[in-house]
Amino acid sequence: MTHFSIDDVTVLHVDDDSSFTEIVSEFLEREDAVVSVESATSVEEALTVLRNEPVDCIVSDYDMPNRDGLDFLELVRDDYPELPFILFTGKGSEEIASRAISAGVTDYLQKETGTEQYTVLANRIQNAVRSARAETAVQRTEDRYHNLVDTAPIPILLFDRDWKALYANEAAVTFLDADSFAEIAGKKASDFLHPDEQDTARERFQRLMRDDVSVPEREYRVVTAEGEVETATIATAPGYYRGEKVAQAMVYR
């Protein structure tokens, strides 16, 4: 995954022991200069903070009165499904860990004695925030790609390393006489090429994926989902989709 720098990280720490929240804030801010900590001593107070301030990561105790850390996690996941949430608890058990994982916890850390635990916690926070920001960046890139390509007038398809279709825009679905992309998904490019064209196309695909370079456009006989043969010029270039290397095929008739 791409390395993302971490800066200006706001952590919401929730624990009903106010003296412990002070200790955690002090150590985390000392451990990592870019971290600032907001503290809350109840789930209700924490929800108020979430509604009014931007937060990059939540660190929560489990054993709290009224609502415990798993109750809080479930509430957070309802409104903030991607927000990093670390359960930092002194009451650990396989049952709690299992329930936390099922509820979508990002990480689970047992409270220990000594200051080393705060270094570990700071690292877990960094990793969680970095991962969340990287996933957000990938999602934004993918959204921009779809905004640009979905309604493009030319057929465009993406194929993975195994030559299987990952994506096709509406123009490609129409060109291939398919009812929807579901009819295309997972099929190999060779399924849509005349048998006499398949070996050449495979060699060009392998060169593209190996050397990470575009291959010159070429005319192919394309077999549609209805079995019709269409002649088209196909240009193929390398790209990335959902973090994976792909071949992007653009069809010109």
Results as ranks from 00 to 15, higher is better:
106 T>N: 10
105 V>I: 13
214 S>I: 01
74 E>G: 12
198 Q>E: 07
253 R>G: 10
33 A>W: 09
66 N>A: 15
184 I>L: 15
163 W>P: 00
9 V>S: 12
10 T>P: 12
30 R>H: 08
160 D>H: 04
42 S>V: 11
155 P>K: 10
190 S>Q: 08
106 T>Y: 03
49 V>N: 13
58 I>Y: 05
30 R>M: 12
62 Y>Q: 09
153 P>T: 12
72 F>N: 09
70 L>F: 15
118 Y>M: 14
247 A>D: 07
145 Y>Q: 03
68 D>F: 03
218 R>I: 00
59 V>S: 10
105 V>H: 01
148 L>K: 07
94 E>M: 15
83 L>M: 14
137 A>N: 04
243 G>M: 09
219 E>F: 00
33 A>E: 14
183 E>R: 03
37 V>A: 09
164 K>T: 07
136 T>H: 04
232 A>I: 09
180 S>V: 02
171 A>L: 01
66 N>E: 14
58 I>N: 06
22 E>D: 13
106 T>I: 12
48 T>Q: 15
81 P>L: 03
66 N>S: 13
102 S>Y: 06
184 I>D: 02
80 Y>V: 13
64 M>H: 03
148 L>M: 13
136 T>Q: 15
37 V>T: 12
76 V>W: 09
209 M>I: 14
220 Y>W: 05
96 I>T: 08
196 D>R: 05
16 D>N: 15
80 Y>M: 12
84 P>L: 01
145 Y>L: 11
140 R>P: 03
14 V>R: 03
113 T>K: 00
114 G>C: 06
67 R>M: 14
236 T>A: 09
16 D>P: 07
105 V>S: 10
31 E>G: 02
164 K>M: 01
26 E>W: 02
105 V>L: 10
137 A>K: 12
217 E>G: 06
85 F>D: 08
180 S>F: 04
184 I>Q: 05
122 A>E: 12
89 T>R: 08
234 I>G: 00
21 T>L: 13
158 L>K: 01
82 E>I: 09
179 D>A: 12
95 E>L: 05
18 S>Q: 11
185 A>L: 14
31 E>I: 13
163 W>Y: 00
139 Q>E: 04
238 P>A: 08
80 Y>I: 06
144 R>Y: 06
190 S>A: 14
165 A>H: 02
141 T>I: 11
121 L>V: 09
210 R>D: 13
45 E>S: 14
219 E>G: 05
152 A>F: 14
185 A>R: 10
23 I>D: 04
190 S>W: 04
228 E>H: 01
127 N>E: 01
106 T>S: 15
71 D>K: 11
178 A>F: 07
81 P>T: 08
85 F>R: 06
157 L>M: 08
